[in-house]
Design a protein around this nucleic acid. Structure first.
Lengths: 154, 154
DNA sequence: TGTAAATACTCAGTGCCCTGACTAATTGGG
DNA sequence: CCCAATTAGTCAGGGCACTGAGTATTTACA
């Protein structure tokens, strides 16, 4: 008694949604390259030479996780990492030719997969769905750091 | 060139959504008990004595993952696991008193957290959002097993 | 009845995701 | 100019999520 209906809990649904996507990605896009890895490649296609932290910020991964993901991409030969001569703390990232090719190849499949993923919704609903997810995710993004006390000079 | 806008990709948004939820859960609900762990407790409140596999099915976790989650709940003393005398393969699961108390306590906080999580949407949008997430997740659920060939006689 | 198939669970391996503690490099104020 | 604060990255540790392989038990059919 007093049990709750989890199908009304957005967090539970978000998890199931992500699992569904993970599965679909694996069968329709790639078994080697994961969705977060593709996100990193995509970011570096748009902005070559970014540093690790910034890439993480773009795709929504913290410094530890982005380091792991980048490590795997380098091991696979899709990425290069060189120290920034201007700032010895940073590493600058750049796709290899193989990385470029992989990104191009997966981009097509990703588009197909997105269609299948959203197929249960009609086009209008799809747009609404994307829009609502974005708003919720963006809002929560703002809650990460508890706002550095707005210069409260009494 | 040829980079894609990830904010239109439902999979990427689903991941960010789940991360946002993870964070909010941690600050507003519990640092000890995770959302999947709560889902397991909740399922066993509704249906005490279920076996491991069935609980996994209810909350959407495969056999390996549910085993780990249940292991942690047992270690924390929230769950008991006994062999089914009727079927020696199964383990029957049941909440301890501590497990019941924990579930009750977290239920309240979870409701509050859901409100905060959905706060960027107005009530109508919230209902639509839940509904769309559920439809997409449910549909993808059906794609898991490639359908065992519908008794294609002849 | 005896064995092959199905079922419940375990284990090893990979990858994502976070926190907290640490190192190294840079920047800025006294 | 020097040292404290900031910033980029690493590392250890815990948890979720999957696949594929292996064990034990049950079932079903020949």
């Amino acid at each position: 008694m007093a049990a709750v209906d989890l199908t009304t809990h957005p967090g539970h649904l978000a998890r199931r949604l992500q699992q569904a996507h993970y599965l679909l990605w694996n069968t329709m896009v790639s078994e080697e390259i994961t969705s977060p890895q593709f996100a990193v490649l995509n970011t570096l296609v748009a902005e070559p030479g970014l540093d690790q932290r910034t890439v993480g910020e773009r795709v929504g991964l913290d410094r530890s996780t982005i380091a792991e993901v980048i490590g795997r991409l380098i091991r696979r030969g899709l990425l290069d990492k060189v120290r920034d001569p201007q700032d010895g703390r940073r590493f600058l990232l750049r796709l290899t030719d193989e990385g470029m090719r992989t990104h191009r190849r997966l981009t097509v499949r990703t588009a197909r997969m997105n269609q299948v993923f959203l197929a249960p919704l009609d086009p209008g609903e799809q747009a609404v769905f994307i829009e609502l997810m974005r708003r919720v995710a963006d809002a929560a993004e703002g809650l990460r750091d508890p706002a550095p006390a707005p210069t409260a000079a009494h």
